[in-house]
Simulated assay, not measured.
Amino acid sequence: MKEEIFSAYLTELGSKDGSSGGGSSAAYIGAMSASLARMVADIQKDKKKYADQKDKLVYLLKESQRIRESFEDLAKADAVAFKPVLDAYKLPKETSEEKGLRDAGIEQALKTAVEPPRTMLDEGLSLIRVLEELTSMRMKGTIVNDLMVATLFMESVLETAVLNVTINTKLMKDNNVKNQLEKEAKKNLVQGKKQLKKLSDSISFFLEHNKWPEYQTEEE
């Protein structure tokens, strides 16, 4: 992101119109995490040490790039996702027919608004798998610090995505849809945090001792 573009986004984020918020911020953090993973794969893919794993590193590079682009799209989608909900709440409700149309409009708008954070969760789990693959290669040097930063970023991304799922579901009238979405989100969060904890513990061990823990193997 060019400096002037990033500065413009921060100005927009800090403005009172509220068009951008926590959701888009988390998506950009996810994009940064994906970019860090891409950088690690790009640096390592041409090293003799990883010559026999070059295809794997090229795949991880491409997957990181795909996820980064997806997060950037999600940042834009999230910024406008809730507006249709607000518009639906402004619909007339003087008659029973108007109330019915308004309620249906709100419900549909909420189901649409919940999609960006749901996708953010899915892409977050995809990126965690990339980080697991990179970490399993037992890399050395300061580049491991970048893997740690990417890992730390992802917990905030997952937590924010779940918050933005539930901010929509709590307004839904359809309890079946509401419960299904919340159950799915919480399950993904628990799984993601479990994976991130294992990653964080392993990388922290390396950063402290300059060697990988014995329980981590390349097959993990």
Score class of each variant (00 low, 15 high):
V58R: 03
V165M: 02
I167W: 07
A109K: 07
D78Q: 09
V58I: 15
K197I: 02
A88Y: 11
L163M: 14
Q180N: 15
G105M: 01
M172S: 00
L125D: 07
A41D: 03
I143P: 05
K16I: 13
G18V: 04
S204G: 08
D87G: 12
T112I: 15
K99W: 15
L127E: 00
L134R: 01
L127S: 06
V177C: 06
V58P: 00
L181N: 04
D122K: 12
Y89I: 13
T151A: 10
K48A: 03
L61P: 04
L127F: 03
G14T: 02
T11D: 09
N175I: 05
K178A: 01
Y89P: 14
D52V: 08
N145Y: 11
K2F: 09
G192R: 06
A75H: 02
T166A: 08
E3K: 12
E63R: 07
E220L: 10
L13N: 03
S7V: 09
K186E: 06
N179P: 01
S64E: 00
E4F: 12
T11V: 12
F206C: 05
G30T: 09
K2S: 11
A185P: 05
T135N: 02
Y59T: 00
A77N: 11
A150G: 05
A113W: 01
L10E: 06
R38D: 10
G192I: 00
K178I: 00
K170I: 14
A77T: 04
K83Q: 13
L158G: 00
